[in-house]
Simulated scan of single mutants.
Amino acid sequence: MSVDVAWARAELSSFLKLTELYTPESPRGVSVISSRRSTRGGAQEVVASAQVVEQILDRVVPRWRTEVPDDGNRRVNRWCQLREAAQRADAALLRDAEARERLGDNAPQLSASTMHSWVWDGARSLWHSGHFREAVTAAVRKVNAETQNKVGRRDASETALFQSVFSKDAPRAGQPRLRLRPDDGGDTFRSVQRGAAAFADGRYAALRNPNSHEDGLPELPEH
């Protein structure tokens, strides 16, 4: 699902307004000299807005936690890092669609959050911190673990597990099968099962194994 740009920008704008600092006016007839400043929104209102804004940032500028400075400005405004990230995200939302249209590359963009939860839940935290190779490995391992849970097996894993569960043979005791479509004995059924097994085999051969067995591999690029 693509980002609702209008809604996201409205949420970011609201957060920026709530976290803006101002100097409260002194009560009528009282002169107070103070450097203390407050956010325009109350604490509960700001926290509720921040919870939504963080989800927007994770979609629009996913590495904001490591790329946006989190320095001493927190002493002035605890929301300074989130405010800068929100400003970056707003600019990205405003200009991205325009840039892709004008540059002639308006192709659809893949959102990792639309992948199966086994994949994204396994990769999320590492991906957000820029550890792409480790994120891919973690996702593959989680798919393996969840598949073992689904079929109730611990005696097989990874390639052997998927070759077994996607086998075209009838299930046997201790060897349940997974079917991507009803087994009607036709060519399409056999092709789909063979393709699923080959895809799983390739995932472990090309992704999981090199990442796990070789030291000093360079970081994967994000794409």
Rank of each mutant, 00 (worst) to 15 (best):
T159R: 11
E11W: 06
Q148W: 02
W64D: 11
G41Y: 10
R172G: 15
Q87T: 05
T66W: 01
D187Y: 06
P221E: 02
T137Q: 09
Q193T: 11
L82M: 02
I33G: 00
N77E: 10
A205P: 03
L93D: 06
F199N: 12
V136C: 03
A123H: 08
M1Q: 09
E98A: 05
P171T: 03
R83T: 03
S49F: 02
A8H: 09
E146P: 09
L110M: 14
G185K: 11
A99C: 05
A97C: 00
A85R: 05
V192G: 00
V151T: 13
D70N: 13
R74A: 05
R133E: 14
S117E: 12
D201R: 04
G216S: 06
P221W: 06
A50G: 03
R37S: 04
R177H: 06
L207Q: 13
L18R: 04
L217K: 04
A43Q: 15
V151F: 11
H116T: 10
G104R: 01
A89G: 11
R179M: 03
R179S: 01
A170I: 01
A197E: 14
A135E: 02
A6E: 08
Q148V: 01
G122A: 05
A156C: 00
G185W: 15
C80T: 13
L110N: 08
Q51W: 07
P24V: 10
D4S: 02
I33F: 04
A200C: 05
A205I: 05
D4I: 07
A48Y: 11
A107S: 14
D155Y: 03
W118Q: 03
L21V: 09
Q175E: 14
R179C: 02
F132G: 01
Q44G: 01
S191W: 02
L207K: 02
G104A: 04
P27E: 02
S157V: 05
G216D: 10
R63N: 05
C80M: 09
S14H: 13
E219T: 08
N73T: 15
R181Q: 12
T137M: 04
E219Y: 02
V68E: 08
H213N: 10
A50V: 14
D187N: 05
G104P: 08
L126H: 09
G130W: 03
G185A: 03
G29K: 07
D187A: 12
P62S: 00
G174S: 09
L220K: 09
V52Y: 04
I33A: 10
P210F: 06
S212T: 15
W118C: 01
A138F: 03
Q193M: 13
T159P: 07
A91G: 07
L126A: 07
R9N: 13
R203D: 06
R9V: 07
W127L: 01
S14V: 03
D121V: 01
P62T: 01
T188K: 15
M115F: 12
V140I: 14
D184Q: 07
L82W: 12
A135I: 03
Y22C: 12
P108T: 04
V76S: 15
V52L: 12
G216N: 14
T66G: 08
P210C: 09
G152W: 02
A92L: 11
M1Y: 04
E11R: 15
H223F: 12
W7L: 05
A145V: 13
L220I: 12
E20P: 00
W64P: 04
Q51E: 09
A197H: 08
A92C: 10
E101R: 10
